[in-house]
Design a protein around this nucleic acid. Sequence first.
DNA 1: TACTTGACCGTAT
DNA 2: CATACGGCCAAGT
Length: 113
Amino acid sequence: MKEEYLKVFEAIAAIPPGRVASYGAIAARAGLPGRARLVGRLLGEVPDGMTLPWFRVLRSNGQIAMPPGSRGFREQSRLLRAEGVEVKNGRVPLSRFGLDADVDRELWGIPGR
DNA sequence: TACTTGACCGTAT
DNA sequence: CATACGGCCAAGT
């Protein structure tokens, strides 16, 4: 397993419950800025036995990446809602649930949730 | 080797 | 909101 891949899996595993992160943000946190596609690729072939909070990874605009109505799409929505994340029309308000929202609120004093 | 694909992204129109 | 464009790059054909 390549070192790069491990870093990506680590970054995903580090997303706290009730929060979400974009593919690009994960790539950046793994030290691979600009390589969001790699993150998407890896999630499609997670090694057997490894469990990851894959459902906490969304597109940069907060949308679920899988085809609307597909099994994965519904499963992801369910898992997110199960931990308190708001999913409306296949989309999550990153302003409130995104990891970076913490930083934003600290910088600007914007009330969250 | 060459070309296509795809759980992506930011900017521009 | 939608389309287009250029970046990115591992895998599959």
